[in-house]
Simulated assay, not measured.
Amino acid sequence: MEYLIHEPSVKTEKKKALILLHGVGSNEKDLFGLVDHLPRDYYVICPQGHFSLGGGRYAWYNVDFSTGKPVYSLQQEEESRKLIRQFVVEMKAKYHLDEVYLGGFSQGGIMSYTVGLSDPTLVKGIIILSSRILEEVKPQLVKQAPELRVFVSHGTQDGTLGIHYAREAKEYLEGMQVQLSYHEYAMGHQINQQVLADLNSWLAAQ
């Protein structure tokens, strides 16, 4: 996959990275724009979605909201899931990374949930920004992941993926016994300064 990378400006003994996945209809430049707001001792790596929607817009799988509920291609989701797993392994090897946190916004968060919760040994933690767990993939997820660290943020006024998705995910994650940091904000389908502040505090504590 094509990707953008920002190397840490503060060198530490342990090499850590954030691999961030954009939402549907966006591209690798989107979350890469947050580099100046993220910890300076992390690599920030942003890959481009596998499926082109045209006009510089990409997705991890096609999704249709016309019915009022998201209808998506499970086959494409599985294809992207395999590519993301492979990408994480390749980035670990190429940059000699000790810890990887996989995260994303909206559809990128969905992919981060699936990859991280189906293979929690692959990453140190996952970062979920305004997203949900796909019901269809739950049978493929592990039963418990007590070592996995999970940061979740969601807006209570989110009109794209309602807050109920986050609250359902919270209950599910608590059942998996992950190390959960859960946050709700008075915002829509977005990432605001408070989300970034809380994310930075969480990353600093890991």
Rank of each mutant, 00 (worst) to 15 (best):
M1G: 06
Y3L: 11
L4V: 11
H6S: 11
E7I: 10
E7S: 14
S9V: 15
E13M: 13
K14N: 07
K16Q: 15
L18I: 10
G33P: 01
R40K: 15
Y43G: 13
F51D: 05
S52V: 12
G56Q: 07
R57H: 11
W60A: 00
N62F: 07
V63L: 09
D64K: 08
V71I: 15
L74S: 08
L74F: 11
L74G: 02
E77I: 01
E79D: 12
K82N: 13
K82S: 09
F87G: 08
E90Y: 02
E90T: 07
K92H: 02
A93T: 11
K94L: 15
D98F: 04
D98P: 01
V100P: 07
L102I: 14
I110Q: 00
M111V: 03
Y113F: 14
G125H: 02
I127E: 00
S131W: 03
R132M: 04
L134I: 06
L134P: 03
T156M: 13
G159N: 13
G159E: 14
L161K: 07
Y165N: 15
R167N: 07
E168M: 09
M176Q: 03
Q177Y: 06
Q190H: 09
A197W: 01
D198F: 05
L199G: 06
N200E: 08
L203R: 01
L203P: 02
A204G: 07
A205C: 12
